[in-house]
């Protein structure tokens, strides 16, 4: 559904605006954030090492080479997912919160332990979904968990702020009635829309080369992520890339 791509893009976007940002991979056993961020060969210590006290947080954080306010905390490739303890995760987040403005937690797929740990301490949640029935349904289940199982819920504090980010959007297919529209998904999930990321070749190109797609400022997906970061920070930006691109006369004539 694009959670890691989105985490990488949002974290980079926040950091580029001057905010000290850490992005953490919670997918223990199947780590991929380091790969998407292009720092896979610089991983020495990981999240689980820090939780177990085998390394301190500064040894494990990898500073991004393109943006000096951005740091990556990779997941462990070898441990099992239970290595993330609630207390351990809490301690690491508390430590990071002392020096960072934003901490982006990249959740693994599903609703198991890793995803639960990624959301438990959250203040804000970005629910990443694509316009496909199973994805939308899973998102709704995740919303249920956010509202009932988070620390904020347990402590009866103000609920986690929830945002919707729709990825892999194809306006042509929506126009043909083949794909759920933005408004359909919004209506079903009743969520504030943070952004719509068009289905784009740029996403695969970006992950191929380990560059967060938001740095591809020429691309539609990069611009859409940049808008999403702006909206998250309170800017009022219109949604783009929701309409079919203008075609030439001939292709319109042929309806192609």
């Amino acid at each position: 559904m694009g959670k890691t791509t989105t985490s990488a893009a949002l974290a980079m976007g926040l950091a580029q605006r001057g905010h000290r940002t850490a992005v953490i991979d919670f997918d223990v056993g199947l780590r991929n954030l380091d790969l998407i961020m292009g720092c896979e060969r610089r991983v020495v210590y990981d999240f689980v090492n820090v939780i177990n006290g085998e390394a301190n947080i500064n040894q494990a954080l990898i500073r991004d080479k393109r943006c000096d306010t951005l740091y990556v905390l990779p997941a462990s490739q070898t441990r099992d997912k239970d290595a993330l303890t609630k207390d351990g995760v809490g301690r690491v987040l508390e430590e990071l919160a002392k020096t960072f403005d934003y901490i982006v937690c990249d959740s693994p797929a599903g609703i198991e332990h890793g995803a639960y740990m990624a959301m438990y301490y959250a203040d804000d949640a970005v629910v990443v979904t694509n316009p496909e029935v199973s994805s939308v349904r899973d998102s709704d289940r995740m919303l249920g968990i956010l509202s009932s199982k988070s620390r904020r819920a347990e402590r009866n504090e103000a609920p986690i702020r929830e945002y919707l980010l729709l990825t892999r959007y194809a306006p042509e297919r929506v126009a043909k009635g083949e794909m759920l529209s933005v408004n359909d998904v919004r209506e079903i999930l009743s969520l504030d829309l943070l952004g719509v990321i068009p289905e784009s070749k740029a996403v695969l190109n970006a992950s191929n080369s380990g560059v967060p797609v938001i740095l591809d400022t020429e691309s539609d997906a990069g611009q859409a992520y940049n808008d999403a970061v702006g909206r998250y920070l309170g800017e009022d930006l219109p949604h783009r890339f929701l309409e079919i691109k203008k075609k030439g006369f001939f292709s319109r004539l042929m309806g192609g």
Binding site: V133, R137, L180, E187
Partner: peptide
Amino acid sequence: GTAAIAKERLQILV
């Protein structure tokens, strides 16, 4: 389109 069917099914399910 199938999108309309998807929406209807999802609304019931959700």
